[in-house]
Amino acid sequence: MDFGYSINQSSKIDMDRASGDIAAQVLRYEPSFAVCIGCGACMATCSAGRFTPFNLRRLQLMVMRGQTDSVHAEAEKCMLCGKCRLICPRGINTRNVLLAIHHFTAPAPTLDIR
């Protein structure tokens, strides 16, 4: 029977490559990032997500795991429309989280965020 989804491939996190630095920076800049429970409401409502597999929940997961290689380019798919902020059951300032993720994963940070 096809349920439309399948079991994920198992993956292991390479702790030598994973770094918590970016998560720490994002958390300091936007503390509400900490309370994310990964419910996925943001991806369900996402305007960009309708056209492309852009997914804020996944970005959050990748940042928290320290697997931030592809995160920067991924974050730029956001249209910043702000629906996810209104829908978030945890009241996370999602737009600012996204801007922070984008900024702190940039090869050369362009913006001076304190």
């Binding site: 509400s32 429309c81 902020r85 009241g91 300032n93 737009r95 600012n96």
Partner: peptide, 8 residues
Amino acid sequence: VGNAVLTG
């Protein structure tokens, strides 16, 4: 939507 930094 003019303000991204204001907390919830």
